[in-house]
């Protein structure tokens, strides 16, 4: 007998309803049920951060939440950052600074970076490294990622000044 329940929430700005078994992780719901495969599965125990998403603007690991727990919540995944015409400044910065090699960890880093810059618009290198300690990259050695975050901070601050 199916144990499925209906969950309704907002994902990347859209009202969504989906069916889930209670034991399905949020990551599984996002990837397999909703087709949002940007968030990646790495370790399943909260070390790698490849599945980082925002729930009500807070950075969490989607593998360590049940899908059923996002009832009524506002979820943003990496797919929700760019608009139709242009990349989000964080994505732009990772491209310009070559902040990726194989790319598997990149969606997690980008979402985590957005969360950092929303909280702290001008992080120091120490603050960047400390904040991103929950995201693992096996290719870059992190320096290019840190440079990407610094550029993203600059791009976002410039954009804000441009608006004023």
């Amino acid at each position: 007998m199916s144990n499925k329940r209906v969950v309704s929430s907002t994902i990347n700005g859209q009202q969504v309803e989906f069916l889930t078994e209670p034991q399905q992780s949020l990551l599984e719901c996002l990837r397999d049920t909703l087709g949002l495969t940007g968030s990646k599965e790495g370790c399943n125990d909260g070390n790698c951060g490849a599945c980082s998403v925002l729930i009500n603007n807070r950075l969490v690991n989607a593998c360590l939440m049940l899908g059923i727990e996002i009832e009524g919540k506002d979820v943003v995944t990496v797919e929700g950052l760019a608009d139709v015409h242009e990349l989000h400044p964080v994505q732009e910065a990772f491209v310009l600074e070559d902040g990726l090699q194989c790319g598997y960890c990149t969606p997690g880093f980008i979402v985590a970076t957005k969360a950092l810059l929303d909280k702290n618009a001008n992080p120091t290198e120490d603050e960047i490294r400390f904040w991103l300690a929950g995201n693992l990259c096996r290719c870059t050695g992190y320096d290019k990622i840190v440079r990407s975050v610094r550029l993203a901070s600059q791009l976002m601050n410039d954009a804000k000044e441009g608006l004023q």
């Binding site: 909260g46 969490v60 690991n61 929950g134």
Partner: peptide, 12 residues
Amino acid sequence: LPYIAHPQIRNR
């Protein structure tokens, strides 16, 4: 507090 895992974990 900052010693407890990572931001993702402390947020949840």
